[in-house]
Design a protein around this nucleic acid. Structure first.
Length: 573
RNA sequence: CGGGAUGUAGCGCAGUCUGGUAGCGCGUACGGUUCGGGACCGUAAGGUCGGAGGUUCAAAUCCUCUCAUCCCGACCA
């Protein structure tokens, strides 16, 4: 491709509304333009990078035995009512009516549609296993779209769905997808980690997230420094040993009400009463799809709503509003406590051994001290309900853990029979018995993968594309467009390389050298060939590798081979 | 949805407090000099000052409403 023909509007300055580096660079490198919040147009360069990722995905999916289909964006409400997600999915699901007043939604995911397809077609165990995937635009009306392609509302996603006769087969499918995902992200040149994750809205029994390590990531991930345990913050288990070491040996004292005017937060209370946060018990009131519940955690811990949700087995869980807190506890927020509370109370395990706790008195400007469980209040269940902290130990091997940030680029779920049951997707087994199909689902954020790659591969001059996903593999810079020899040398090399299947961008603009260098660096083409009249006099060209900055003067005749070898080497990884 | 900020030329910004001819840099077009890391000189084009209403002789500027975008939060009581 000739630069003068390419629609590649690069920007010298950083657009004001881009915060993270990948977003800034994608805008500056002319890959992307915003239409409206969370919705983007891909320009030629951006699309090429996305298509590269798609190609890798397709190759690995096919290799793992999955077949490509394409499902519609618009989906009928009936299906969603059948799976009962019409009511559960919430506001992320964009709903609308057609001219006849029938309800529809824009697909945020496709479990319903694919299951509907399969239940109509699959009859026998002989039809299984089956794995179908698509690469298609999803629409999710995110609360807060941000960071460009990191969290958009409309975005390209690869979603695959596996159908198996039994758990064993499903586990195999899951493993196979896990392997494919590892290969995909490796081939994209990413530094990533597969972590255990909560199943959330999609449902199912267990799942893993593929996280690209980056400080700008929206997710926190916990991993062991020693063994291979790694989990999403939401999912990460607390090592139970931690609790026994924190046993309190003191004898119970009598409970006392103390006045704490305008003292609400953990910090304020501990300071005001001169106690440690470990002595304090926080009482958080949640509203759920069932009854409201009070959750107790130690003052220096934080509630993990995902765990609470799982323990209670409820479909929705939200922190209660100020009014609800007032109604249920009789006190404004900041003074809730377990004593005298009439709603269900569950507590984190770390609360169990605490003697003489400090907690809110369910009365404005008052707390209780010397509170003891059993005597002053009862807890209906103890469970692991909190977020892990830096001082926790690995739940598997007990060694230290570290907490890092990551970008979720892929997520795989073992769904079990959740959707096949809801939508009656069954097959007949060898004995003629009707059984539910066991499902799995597997997603990759395509645009997000590109953004994550940029987040991980850039320098102050711009993007450094890994070869496998680079929009162009080579950029040729003839420095003097008025010099016939320079131009014909550039044209010749361009023809040679293109003829060999290399993806080459020829910067044929009549620009000064500096401008060409800057743009080449910005758009991150891995291999740069500089053709200037000085070195050309000696029959030499300069080949530079963007990632390392290594330069090499090569003869005009030898250039083609050197460049092709470089591409091959980088693609091979 | 709660909190904060910002909307002025394609991009980045000043001007708003204290009302009085709408500016600067980059980019763009044309001419010239330059030519291996975002050149220089000259000329020119380009703006409903986000929108609506109001106050005023006069509004980018003051007031009211509204829309949009970005950031933080939406679990720490």
């Amino acid at each position: 491709m000739r630069y003068t023909k390419l629609f590649l509007p690069t920007l010298r300055e950083i657009p004001a509304d881009a915060e993270v580096i990948s977003h800034q660079l994608m805008l500056r490198a002319g890959m992307l333009r915003k239409l409206t919040s969370g919705i983007y147009t891909y320009l030629p360069l951006g699309l090429r990078a996305i298509k590269k990722v798609e190609k890798i995905i397709r190759e690995e999916m096919e290799r793992a035995g999955a077949q490509e289909v394409l499902m519609p964006t618009v989906q009928p409400a009936d299906l969603w009512k059948e799976s009962s997600r019409w009511d559960v999915y919430g506001k992320e699901l964009v709903r609308f009516k057609d001219r006849h007043g029938r309800d529809y939604c824009l697909g945020p995911t496709h479990e319903e549609v694919i299951t509907d397809l399969i239940r109509g077609e699959v009859r026998s165990y002989r039809d299984l296993p089956l794995n179908l995937y698509q690469i298609q635009n999803k629409f999710r009306d995110e609360i807060r779209p941000r960071f460009g392609l990191m969290r958009g509302r409309e975005f390209s996603m690869k979603d695959a769905y596996s159908f198996d006769a039994d758990e064993e087969g499903a586990a195999k499918s899951y493993q196979s997808m896990s392997g494919a995902y590892n290969r995909i992200f490796e081939r994209c040149g990413l530094n990533f980690k597969a972590v255990e994750a909560d199943t959330g809205n999609i449902g199912g029994s267990f799942s893993h997230e593929f996280m690209v390590l980056a400080d700008t990531g929206e997710d926190a991930i916990v991993s062991c420094v020693e063994c291979d345990y790694a989990a999403n913050m939401e999912k990460a288990e607390v090592n139970p040993d931690y609790i026994t070491k924190e046993q309190h040996e003191t004898l119970p004292v009598s409970m006392e009400r103390v006045s704490t005017p305008n003292v609400r937060t953990v910090e304020e209370v501990t300071q005001f009463l001169s106690v440690t946060p470990k002595q304090l018990v926080k009482t958080m009131i949640f509203e759920t799809s069932a009854e409201p519940v009070a959750v107790l955690v130690r003052g220096d811990h934080e509630v993990n709503p995902a765990k609470v949700k799982n323990v209670l087995g409820v479909e929705t869980l939200e922190l209660a509003s100020e009014e609800t807190v007032l109604k249920l506890t009789g006190a404004p927020a900041g003074f809730a406590g377990a004593v005298g509370l009439s709603i269900k109370i569950i507590a984190d395990k770390a609360v169990e051994p605490i003697k003489n706790m400090v907690m809110g008195a369910n009365e404005k400007d008052a707390h209780f001290i010397g509170v003891n469980r059993g005597r002053d209040f009862e807890v209906s269940e103890f469970a692991d309900l909190r977020l892990v902290t830096h001082s926790d130990r690995c739940p598997r091997c007990g060694k230290a853990i570290e907490i890092k940030r990551g970008i979720e680029v892929g997520h795989i779920f073992k769904l079990g029979d959740k959707y096949s049951k809801a939508l009656s997707a069954t097959y007949l087994d060898q004995n003629g018995n009707k059984r539910y199909i066991i499902m799995g689902c597997y997603g990759i954020g395509v645009g997000r993968t590109v953004a994550a790659a940029i987040e991980q591969n850039h320098d102050k001059n711009g993007i450094i594309f890994p070869m496998p996903i680079a929009p162009y593999q080579v950029v040729i810079l003839p420095l003097q467009m008025r010099d016939g020899e320079v131009v014909s040398a550039a044209e010749a090399l361009y023809e040679q390389l293109t003829g060999q299947g290399a993806e080459v961008l020829l910067d044929d603009r009549d620009e000064r050298a500096g401008v060409k260098f800057k743009d080449a660096d910005l758009i991150g083409v891995p291999v740069r060939v500089t053709i200037g009249k000085k070195s050309l006099k000696e029959g030499k060209l300069e080949v530079q590798f963007r990632a390392t900055g290594e330069k090499e003067l090569v003869s005009q005749e030898g250039a083609e081979k050197v460049i092709l070898d470089m591409i091959k080497r980088e693609l091979g990884n």
